[in-house]
């Protein structure tokens, strides 16, 4: 079977949806709404890149939504105090990385199951944020909006940056030695250990990367609106995990790449607009997302059984 079968089939599914939209709802392809859609999904794509890293090491992080909210609010507060944009950006990334490091420490250091650890950090962070902020919004200074550019320019800048970044990360994952360690650990942690790799360290780093990227994504979300609300990241974890899993990153670790995650996210991102354009109620989105996750893991399960592994 072709190595990139999954990536290709997801791209195929995406193409079919786009063709269907072109045939039945050409309004979808108007440039401005499309650009807005891309801008809205840009932060999610950044997080999906980090999530792919973590899942390839055979872990999972469902606290990204809370990390996203916390980094966003913190960055927003700093921006509101008049910090310059670059410093705010660095702060957002650092806060995210710190939160990721906490997860990494618990998972890699104490060898706790990542699902329960991140479930706990998800709620702790979210409720902590709610407790402190009481649902209050942060008003952002205008200078932060679209990096001080016009809206259209800002949107283009954001989308282009995101795509370049994702490509860069994808290339790094393939062409930098450290990227390959991630795969080695996810494929077989014991064999990795025998080959002189520390699975613990790699796992920890993957969580830190995901945290940092989540911080970056929060920053990218921040510049899009005049206000930032504490619930901005709620539910993000599911969308991100769904995108990554649908894109062919195996939950059993060691397999997948960012192109698949990119295609997976685009597929999921098109569902909601497609539903509206095709006159299906948007309330089905979550159910369809869940169904797509299940289909994707079922496909993996079938393939694994056929492969006899």
């Amino acid at each position: 079977m072709n190595r990139y079968f999954r990536e290709l089939s997801v791209t195929g599914a995406l193409a079919i949806i786009l063709l269907g939209l072109a045939a039945f709802a050409p309004a979808f392809f108007q440039p401005q709404p499309l650009l807005s859609l891309a801008t809205r999904e840009a932060p999610t794509l950044i997080v999906a890149g980090g999530m792919a890293l973590v899942i390839i090491t055979r872990q999972i992080d469902i606290s990204v939504g809370s990390q996203f909210s916390v980094s966003g609010i913190c960055a927003g507060l700093l921006a509101a105090r008049g910090w310059p944009l670059p410093l705010v950006l660095i702060a957002a990334i650092s806060i995210g990385a710190l939160l990721g490091a906490l997860n990494g420490l618990l998972v890699a250091g104490l060898r706790l199951p990542s699902i329960v650890v991140t479930l706990a950090t998800m709620v702790t962070l979210r409720q902590g944020l709610n407790l402190v902020r009481q649902g209050e919004f942060v008003n952002l200074p205008d200078s932060i909006q679209w990096f001080g550019l016009s809206q259209a320019a800002g949107q283009w800048a954001l989308v282009i940056f995101t795509l370049l970044f994702t490509v860069g990360l994808g290339v790094a994952l393939r062409h930098i030695a450290a990227g390959r360690l991630v795969y080695a650990v996810g494929t077989d942690a014991e064999a990795a250990r025998l080959a002189g790799i520390s699975p613990q360290r790699v796992t920890f780093c993957a969580f830190v990367c995901l945290g940092g990227l989540t911080g970056l994504a929060a920053m990218m979300n921040l510049v899009q609106s005049p206000q930032i609300q504490p619930l901005s990241g709620q539910g993000m974890e599911l969308k991100v995990i769904a995108a990554v899993v649908v894109g062919g990153v195996a939950i059993s670790g060691g397999r997948g790449n960012l192109w698949g995650a990119l295609a997976g996210l685009m597929l999921l991102a098109c569902i909601a607009p497609a539903l509206t354009h095709l006159h299906v109620e948007a309330y089905w989105e979550k159910a369809i997302q869940g169904g797509i996750i299940l289909l994707a893991v079922m496909a993996d399960g079938w393939r694994a059984r056929k492969g006899g592994r």
Partner: peptide, 9 residues
């Protein structure tokens, strides 16, 4: 007998 390789790489 059972090679210790990374199967997915």
């Amino acid at each position: 007998q059972q090679p210790a390789l990374f199967p997915d790489l």
